[in-house]
Amino acid sequence: MKNIYKPIRCVVEEVIEESPTIKTIRVKPEEEFNFLAGQFIEFTVPGVGEAPFTPSSSPFCKEYVDVTVMKTGRVTEKIHQLKPKDIVGIRGPYGKPYPLQDFKGKEILLVGGGVGLAPLRALFLALIETIKDYKRIIFCCGAKTPQDYIYKNLILGEWQGFCDKFPLSFRITVDKKDDKWKYMEGVVTCTLDNLDIDIKNSVSVVCGPPIMMKFTTLKLLEIGYKENQIYLSMERKMYCGVGHCRHCLIGELFVCKDGPVFTYEQIKDKPNIWA
């Protein structure tokens, strides 16, 4: 019998310093590993522990898997100490992905804040891969300061070049700018002012810290999005990832099995969703 807790061995290929508190770890799995945007994995540092992350690399990329990790606790601190050639493990993928079938023909609004841009990077790259299926993409990005921006060379660099080729635009902000910053200043919800978008034919996808998701959701509702047009990536403490350990329950919903992507409609009446 296959052991549900057995990870795939991976070799760390690269550690990319994204911001003072966030790193992207690029690993090469020793077995074939596939996932869909929005699904998550359990990432093990042997001898230390395991934590859930949504990969930030493209689901179409077969060579490696990226996870972008903020240093927050015991396990993430050890993840930040990883070096190339170190051995780690991943198991999964778990949970339900973003329902891309339902996004077809629509204007897709992505709203990400801080390390919450990580799952959106995987989603964005998946959308770009099949861009003909969607009407257009508006990608709203936020971070505390310019130094805190992750994927700077992509969001402020390479991906800007995509805007000429694809129906795509960016709205980029920081809570507090510095002298060199040439984009917007203000919390990420300010990127939602004066949106030129056909809301009826749109879906919004939000990922970021709880307080950011809360206010972004309220703002989206205010500008006319319906509860079932707002997709949220939820986070909870999690051990098993497979619906056994019950740590991740939001009401009766498992973040690991029923999520981690939920519509606001699904969870709005559950207790303490913005914890």
Partner: peptide, 24 residues
């Protein structure tokens, strides 16, 4: 009651875990 937690007791290059009861 089925709540459990997992603890990693492996070492640098091998995976070993234990499963322990937890309480909500």
């Amino acid at each position: 009651c089925v709540c459990l937690l997992l603890e990693d007791i492996g070492d640098k290059d091998y995976f070993k875990k234990i499963k322990v009861w937890d309480s909500c």
